[in-house]
Structures are given as C-alpha cells and as structure tokens.
C-alpha cells in the first residue's frame, strides 16, 4: 500500500516539479514571486482543451505547441507588465502577479463559465501494472513528459549561451550587466521559459485532469511552497521540494484524511521555513 501511495506521490511530484521549476526560474532571474503561476497553468489547460476540441490535437502531443504559445504569451506579459514594475517598490513587485492571477482566473470564469470540463479523447488511457503497483497510464505519461521538459530546460540552462547568461543573472545581476548581458531581453526570455514550464505542465495535466477556472490555484500554491521549501532561486531545490510535496500530499491524504492534505502541505511549509528561513537550499536576498 505504501508503495502504491509513494508511486502516486512521485508521479504527482513530477508535475509539481515542472510547475515549480518555472516559478523558481522566474524568481531567480528577476526576483518576482509569480503568484499568477497557477493561473498560467490553468490558461494552458484551457488552451489544450480548445485545441483538442476544435483542432483535434491530443493534449499530450500538443504539449510543445502549448508550451510555445505560453512562451510567447510570457514575453508579452513581461514586456507589458512585469518589466515595468521591476524597479518599483517591494509591494508593487509582490502584488502585481497577484493582480494577474485574480484577473486571469476570473476572466476564465467570466468567459468560459465555472463548469468543469474534460478532454474527451486522449491517446493515453488505461491502467498498467508495474510489479505490485497499479499505475494510471495518463498520469505516467504526464509525469514522464514533465521530466522530459524539465530535463530540456535544465539542459538549456546549463549548456546554451543564453541559458548560462540567465544563470549568471540569477547569481549576480549587476555583475552580469557589467559583463554586457542584456538584462531586459534575458528577463523576458526567462519569464517566457517560466511560463512555458507552466504551459507544458498544464497541457500534460489536461489529458486527465478536470479543467475549471480555479484549477491552477492549488498547483500555483503548491509550487510556491515547493520553491520556498527548496529555497527561492534554486531550480534543483524546487524539483526536490515538489517531489517531497507530492509524497506528503498522497501519504497525508491517505493517513490523515483527504480534507487535510493541503493543510498538511502548508504546515510543512511553515515548519520548514521557520526552521530554515531561506529554505532547504536557498540563498539570495529576502
């Protein structure tokens, strides 16, 4: 039973991991806590849904397309909004993404109604047995997909020139600027990449998860907790934190009661952050 639960937690954790990675990337590069991250996951889920309904693209196969769409959307949002508040006061930087989140969630509710929707046809269906453990195929596919995307992002950050420049910014912004790195352009790219992570996660989730305006909120909050657990700015920390949370959620949901599972996640956040005010692997400013 424990094995079954842990596997479930691990699978969930992989998707959380992808969402968290995007959040962490954005924070590391521009110091913005993206409270709208969950809303972007939700938008990506809707995008996936419409694509499958009207164009007939399967959510899993459409993942790169949705990620690309979200990347472009991220650049637009950065240019129009985020970039303009970066030099503003702390409160503005903290609350702007809050505003975005409220806006997008309620826009979805207004335009597309609060009804639950579900993608009717998906290529990944059914359950497979892996030793003693039942695994739902859609979840497995989504988790593997998440790991692939996370791997791609990781490769991009470590091996490409742009990726290295982005890392340089998150280590020391002013030194990076002195080295001739164009902050504005790379901020935009990093924000786009962060949203692409949310987009890919949303598309993968859309293959088996209910879609409704508030669906992203919990993913966003969980990612926030995961990133804080891992330490703001640490991409690996975010991934580890997310998997930890996936396991806490499934195990806690089973042993303490499903109604308490999110309370447990938040409790874990509060306890860990109080013990280590900068997260497990954190560094950088407050």
């Amino acid at each position: 039973m424990i094995l079954q639960l842990a596997t479930g937690g691990l699978l969930l954790g992989c998707i959380y991991g992808l969402v968290s990675m995007g959040l962490s990337l954005i924070y590391g590069v521009m110091g913005i806590v993206n409270f709208a991250h969950g809303a972007f996951v939700m938008l990506a889920m809707y995008a996936s849904y419409w694509l499958s309904l009207f164009v007939g693209i399967d959510p899993v196969l459409g993942t790169p397309l949705v990620a690309l769409l979200m990347f472009g959307f991220g650049i637009v949002v950065y240019r129009a909004i985020i970039g303009r508040v970066l030099r503003g006061p702390f409160l503005a930087r903290l609350l702007v993404t809050f505003g975005l989140s409220i806006f997008f969630i309620n826009m979805a509710q207004f335009l597309w109604s609060p009804d639950y929707r579900m993608v009717q046809k998906s290529i990944s269906r059914g359950i497979i047995m892996l030793g003693p453990v039942f695994i739902e195929l859609p979840k497995l596919v989504a988790s593997i997909g998440s790991l692939i995307v996370a791997g791609l992002i990781y490769w991009f950050l470590r091996k490409t020139k742009t990726g290295l420049a982005i890392q340089a910014i998150s280590i020391d912004r002013s030194a990076a600027a002195l080295m001739g790195i164009n902050l504005e352009r790379l901020n935009a790219i990093a924000f786009g990449l962060g949203l692409a992570c949310a987009g890919a996660a949303g598309a993968l989730l859309a293959s088996y998860y209910y879609i409704f305006p508030d669906v992203g909120t919990m993913f966003g909050l969980v990612a926030l907790v995961a990133v804080a657990l891992g330490g703001f700015g640490s991409t690996e920390g975010a991934l580890i934190g997310a998997i930890l949370i996936g396991i806490i959620e499934t195990l806690g949901g089973f042993y303490v009661g499903p109604e308490y599972k999110y309370a447990l996640i938040f409790l874990a956040y509060v306890l860990i952050v109080i013990a280590r005010p900068k997260g497990l692997m954190g560094w950088g400013a407050d």
Binding site: I81, R84, V85, G88, P89, L91, A92, R93, L95, V96, F98, G99, L100, S101, I102, F103, F104, I105, N106, M107, A108, Q109, F110, P114, P213
Partner: peptide, 23 residues
Amino acid sequence: SGTGIDLMIYGAFIVLMCVYEPE
C-alpha cells in the same frame, strides 16, 4: 456574484496600480 467580472476588474486594477502608480 460568481461570474467573476467584479474580481476580474479588481485584478486589472491591481496590475494597473502596480505598473503606473505603485505609491
């Protein structure tokens, strides 16, 4: 309430305020 339009306007207000009038 429930259509979300009121909160949508709220959200837009927050964003505009942060961008144009953070004080």
